[in-house]
């Protein structure tokens, strides 16, 4: 009998070893960083020098929306409706990818799909976008003066998201620092931004700031009254050496459909003629953006009709973090605020 038991010992030992090593790997604590006040960390974040790096990142969303089937052709239609669908897809589904940053005007963003990839490559004035699913490339040559701050800033990377949130958070935000965290193998300060108002859906935003370089490594947004994050984007690995310069020299593959796009004339690249500019009501966390979309009949889109529910004065696309109200007269109100605030803003 004892002999029988010893023969089963390896089968019992192996899971213990596996669980043990997994636990050890994840329990590696953060190094001690010198104490800093929240203001110091904001300064560290704002004053960071340009640092070449390459990193893998991961974005997860749990907004309480049904996630859209990725890769499936949705009855999106063309133009604005397609843009709405694309934005919904970006919000509701999880993504991972890589970022490479070389010289100050060199960057490459890769967003991975299961058997595809979308790339954005900025090399000085040359900007390329490539989609392997379509085998299509878009090329823009920027005029000289516009090259300093370009496209990658408008993309979803942990850096860009953190910078935008800090920019938007003003005096209506309370700053605090939690215990140090470890992100992508680097010790980081955990800067917490808590809205000073109850009139927003955002409970708190936590930004992990690299203790050494001041680079934002992870952004976590938690909705009010929730314990699990509604949205998180962060690096899973980070390498602070300069990436291979060849990565930024993009030549579209043979057979790819290449579209040359004229550089945007407006400095921000927003085509004001076609897209109505949103008006913003309120400030800080309570602000509501109003877009006049009466030109396109949004509610007739089957996808939107499915995702929205009828409420007083229109249809609501409700998530844990953001509410979108499409009024009967065709205005779209967006804000990280409760529905009542949107309805009040619509009545104004």
């Amino acid at each position: 009998m004892a002999r029988t038991l010893t023969r089963w010992l390896p089968a019992a030992a192996v899971p213990l070893v596996i669980v043990g090593s997994v636990a050890l790997a994840s329990a590696a604590g953060a190094d001690d960083l010198p104490e800093r006040t929240p203001e110091d960390i904001l300064t560290l974040l704002a004053d960071r020098d340009h640092q070449p790096y390459s990193g893998e990142f991961e974005q997860t969303s749990d907004l309480g929306l049904p996630s859209l089937p990725g890769g499936v052709d949705l009855p999106a239609g063309a133009g604005d409706a397609a843009a709405v669908t694309a934005a919904l897809e970006a919000l509701t589904s999880d993504h991972n990818g890589r970022v490479f940053v070389g010289e100050e005007d060199q960057a490459r963003l890769q967003v991975f799909d299961s058997f595809g990839e979308r790339d954005l490559i900025v090399n000085g004035p040359e900007v390329w976008a490539y989609d392997s699913g379509e085998n299509a490339a878009t090329h823009v040559t920027l005029p000289d003066e516009a090259t300093s701050r370009t496209a990658p800033d408008q993309q979803l990377t942990p850096d860009a998201v953190a910078d935008r949130i800090v920019e938007a958070a003003g005096p209506t935000t309370e700053l605090s620092v939690r215990e140090d965290v470890e992100v992508a193998g680097r010790a980081a300060y955990d800067l917490v931004l808590t809205p000073r108002t109850d009139a927003t859906l955002v409970g708190e935003v936590a930004i992990a700031v690299d203790g050494e370089t001041g680079q934002p490594l992870q952004v976590t947004v938690t909705a009010q009254g929730e314990s699990t994050p509604a949205f998180q984007i962060g690096y899973t690995s980070l390498d602070l050496s300069a990436p291979d310069a060849d990565l930024f020299a993009f030549t579209p593959p043979a057979g790819a459909e290449v579209e040359e796009v004229a550089p945007p004339t407006a400095p921000q690249g927003v085509d004001t003629a076609d897209h109505p500019k949103p008006t913003v009501l309120g400030t800080g966390w309570e602000s509501v953006a109003v877009i006049d979309a009466s030109a396109t009949d949004l509610t007739s889109q089957p996808l939107l009709a499915q995702l929205t529910t009828a409420v007083d004065g229109g249809r609501l696309l409700g998530t844990e973090l953001v509410n979108v109200l499409i009024t009967d007269d065709g205005r779209v109100l967006v804000g990280a605020v409760p529905l009542e605030r949107l309805q009040a803003a619509a009545a104004e």
Binding site: L9, V14, I18
Partner: peptide
Amino acid sequence: APIVWTSFTENVLLQAAYVAFFGALAYG
């Protein structure tokens, strides 16, 4: 480009764990 090694190495570890565990079960 360049190759992402994360899933390759993760898979090697995962399969090694399966070989070790089910190998031990088979031995038992």
